[in-house]
Amino acid sequence: MSATPAPSPPSRPISVLSLSVPVAMGYVPLGMVFGFLFVQAGAPWWLALLASVFVFAGAAQFMMVPMLAAGLPVASIALATLVVNLRHVFYGLSLLDKLPVKPWARWYLVFALTDETYSVLTTLPPGTRTRQMVTVALLNQGWWVLGTLLGAVIGAQAQISLVGLDFALAALFAVLAVEQWRHADSAAPLWVAVVSYAVAWALLPQHALLSAIGLSVLAGLFWRKPAASEVTP
């Protein structure tokens, strides 16, 4: 008589708040910087808040401040935003199997797919519920909106400097990169990114980031994942 296999232990529930808190450590101060700069450029505080609610484009929002101050047309700003956020196309393609089926949830995740939200979503286990994925994205945007509101109010009431808070973005990317490394089966993607940026910086320093992204995409297209028989002893 064969023994009945023991049931597998239940998976530990996911705390979406704990997943979002590291993002908050970067988004709140950076959102404050954006709101502060937006108001200092002469725009009303409520317009900064609307930008973070309906645009939510991170670096493109910072780029938008001097362009609006210079009086550039909306079409030029939209084109520049498209170029800056073009990398999100590749993010979405790699998440097609994970995106929820429900249209409202799918479209919101497409809209809210920032670098940091993408990093968090890719570490979620298979079968994560739609509500949890949407909550993570919603919380991340909420931190950015909160920071924008605080910065806009401060910028409208006081003349202070927020210089130095932009380092929070570099620190946030470092934390997310470490988490990606810990959850990945191989460190190859990290080394591909590092080498790609080193090559791009040496050849095209003024366009290093865009060139590094292109090199990483090419490496991903031609990278052959080793079969299970090749990695098992």
Rank of each mutant, 00 (worst) to 15 (best):
S2V: 15
A3L: 15
P5Q: 13
A6N: 10
P9E: 14
S11T: 14
I14W: 13
V16K: 02
V16A: 12
S18N: 09
S18V: 15
V21I: 15
V23Q: 01
M25A: 15
Y27F: 14
P29K: 02
P29V: 09
G31I: 04
V39A: 09
G42E: 03
W45G: 00
W46N: 00
L50G: 11
A51E: 03
A51C: 07
V53C: 08
F54E: 00
V55R: 00
A57N: 06
A57C: 08
A60N: 02
Q61Y: 02
M63H: 10
A70H: 03
V74Q: 11
A75Q: 12
S76C: 12
S76P: 09
S76I: 02
A78S: 02
A80D: 00
V83S: 09
V84Y: 01
H88Q: 15
H88R: 05
H88T: 03
V89H: 05
F90E: 13
F90R: 04
F90V: 13
L93S: 06
L93T: 10
V101W: 14
V101F: 05
K102F: 11
Y108A: 14
V110W: 00
V110K: 00
D115A: 10
Y118I: 02
Y118S: 06
V120E: 12
L121T: 02
T123F: 05
L124M: 07
P126Q: 12
T128N: 01
T130D: 09
R131M: 15
Q132F: 06
Q132Y: 09
V136I: 15
V136N: 11
L139K: 05
N140A: 12
Q141E: 02
W143I: 11
W144M: 03
V145Y: 00
L146W: 03
T148C: 08
L149W: 07
L150E: 08
L150N: 07
G151M: 06
A152E: 01
I154F: 09
A158I: 13
I160C: 07
L162C: 09
L165R: 13
D166S: 08
F167A: 10
A168I: 09
A168G: 05
A168F: 07
F173N: 03
F173V: 04
F173P: 06
L176H: 05
Q180V: 11
Q180N: 15
H183C: 09
A184Y: 13
W191C: 04
V192F: 11
V192Q: 00
Y197K: 00
Y197E: 06
A198V: 15
V199E: 03
V199H: 10
V199T: 07
H207W: 10
A208R: 07
A208E: 00
L210K: 11
L210V: 10
A212P: 09
A212Y: 05
A212E: 01
I213Y: 05
S216A: 12
V217D: 01
L218R: 11
A219L: 08
G220I: 06
L221F: 11
R224H: 15
P226N: 11
A228F: 11
E230N: 13
